[in-house]
Design a protein around this nucleic acid. Sequence first.
DNA 1: TAATCATAATTGTCCTAGACAAAATAGTAT
DNA 2: ATACTATTTTGTCTAGGACAATTATGATTA
Lengths: 289, 289
Amino acid sequence: MINIQQLSLEVSIGVDTLRIWERRYGFPNPERDSRGHRCYPDEQVEELRVIKKLQLLGLQPNKIFALSALERKDLLQQEQADEGSDNVFVQQLAAELNPTEIDHALRRLLQQLGLEEFIHQAAVPLIHVLDHGWANNSISIAREHLVSDRLESLLKEQLKIGELETALHRLLFLTLSGERHKLGLLLSALLFQQQGLGSIFLNEELPLSEVPPLAEALGVSAVAVSFSAHYPTRQAKKDLASLRNSMTPEIKLIAGGYAVRKEFIMPNLFICSELEKIPSLCKKLFHDN
Amino acid sequence: MINIQQLSLEVSIGVDTLRIWERRYGFPNPERDSRGHRCYPDEQVEELRVIKKLQLLGLQPNKIFALSALERKDLLQQEQADEGSDNVFVQQLAAELNPTEIDHALRRLLQQLGLEEFIHQAAVPLIHVLDHGWANNSISIAREHLVSDRLESLLKEQLKIGELETALHRLLFLTLSGERHKLGLLLSALLFQQQGLGSIFLNEELPLSEVPPLAEALGVSAVAVSFSAHYPTRQAKKDLASLRNSMTPEIKLIAGGYAVRKEFIMPNLFICSELEKIPSLCKKLFHDN
DNA sequence: TAATCATAATTGTCCTAGACAAAATAGTAT
DNA sequence: ATACTATTTTGTCTAGGACAATTATGATTA
C-alpha cells in the first residue's frame, strides 16, 4: 500500500499522469486512506509496470487501457517471442546473479574480443537481453540493475582519462537532470574514444544551465547528450533547443537515444541514434585523417 | 525563462513546493506565458538556489523568506567563513578543472596514504570543500560534479568484487529511487570492506520493492541505505519502516545520511551517521574477531 | 499504391485553491 | 535542564478544468 509519490518513483510515471489516467480510464483504481489520499495495492503497481512497458513499446494509453489485464500480459509475452536472443553466453550472464562471476565473465570476454568487438558483440546484446527481460518480467529489476552495474563499472574503466590532453578533439558526454540511463551514452563515449577522440564522460546528471559553462571551461569540441525512452520527447526537444541556443556555435551538439527524433533539425545539432554510425559521424565532424 | 518542471529539476525543489511558496511568501514571482503558465527568469532561479542552500543549512522557509535577497546572500557568506578548510591540497583539487590532473593527483594521494587514510584525510575533506563551495557559489555545480565524478570512479575501483565469495559476511549498499547522492555511502562501503566484510555497492537507484528480493538472492547479512539532505526526512522514515517490514529479520538494516534521525528506532535497524563509528558498528553486528 | 495534407482525437502537463498530517518551534510544567 | 503540550509551519495531497503538442484518421492527389 503505497502513496502516489512512491508509486510514481516505482513505475516511472508522473504523478499528474497517474491521476489523469484514473480520471480518464478508471485505472489505476486506488483505495483511499483516512484523509482521502490514494493508496495503491501491490497488484495495481504490477499492472502499471506492464502498462508502462507496453507504452515504451510504442502503444498509446488509449489502446492499452482498452485491453484487459490478461490481454495486456499476453501482448507483452508476444513481443518477447520474436526477439529471442541467439547469444547463449549473454543469456547466461543475464541469468547469473553472483556479482563476482558476472564481473569475471565480462572481463574475460573483454580480453578475448578487445574493446570494440566487446561493445558490439557482448555489451549491446547484453543490454538488449536485459531490457527485454525487464519488459517481459523474466528478469527482476534488481537483477537487471546488478548486471548493468557490473557492465557499467567495467566499461568506465576503459575510459582513458590520461589521454585527454593529447587528443586533437575532446568530447563531453553527459545526461541532463532526470535522465538516469547512461549505458548507451557510455558505449558511444568509448566508440568515439576508439576513433582517437578524447572522451570526457560525466556520470552525474547536470542541470541544463550548467552545461554551456562546463563545455567551455573544458574546451571541448562537442557535447553529446542522450535521452532514453523514459525521457519525454517534448522535453528533449526543448532541452536541445535551449542548449544549442546557449552555447557558442563552435561547440557541436550531438544527441542520441530513443526520445530523440530525426525531425529535431537545428544548425550544428547532430542526431546519432545508432552506434554503427559513430565512425562516419566522427569523420564528418572532425575530418582529421 | 524556464517552466516549473525544469525549474524543479534545476533547483531540486518540488513543483508543489514552488507553487505554495509563491502563494505563501510571494516568491518566486514568475511571469506568465500566453497560456498562463509560469515562466521563471534566470535571476529567480539563482535566488532559489540560494534559498535551497539556506534551507539545507537548517533554516526554515519561514525565516528565509523574511530576509531580503541581500541578507540571504550575506548569511550564506557568513556560514562559509567559519568553515575554512585547512587542507590546501584539497582546495587546489577543487579548483583545478582539468580532469586528467584531478585524476592523477587523486591517484598519487591514494598511493601515498593507503585507502583508509585517503578516505579520512582526502576524500572526506574534499567532499566537504565541494559541498561548501557549492553552498557558497565559489564552485560551479558543473565543477563540483566533475571533481566528485573523478573521486567516485577512483573509489569504485577500490571495491574488491573478487573477494565477495570468501568474506564471512556480505553487505549490500544501495540508494532508493530519487536519491542521487552516493559518495558517502561509497565511503562507508569501502570502510566496511576494510573491516573484512564483502561490500556489494549498487550504483543504480532501486525501487523500494526490489530491495528485499535482491538482498535475499545475494544472501547478504545486511543492507545499508543512505539518505542525503535532499531526501525528505518523512519519506526516509516511511521507506525504512517499509523495508524493515518486508525483509526477514535476519538481514540487518543500516541507515545513514543527513535525512536519517536517531529517533527512527526500530528492531534491527542501525543508524550510522558517522564514518568513524563503522568499526565499532561492525563489531557490534558481526562480532567475528 | 504511395505520399501529402487537413482534421480530429488523444495525451500529458499545467492551472487554481483548499485541506491536513507530520515536523518544528514555542510555551509550560515538572 | 528535561518532559510534555500547544501552536505554528511546512510540504504533499485533493479535485476538476484547460490547452498545446503529439499522434491517428480520412480525404485528396500524384
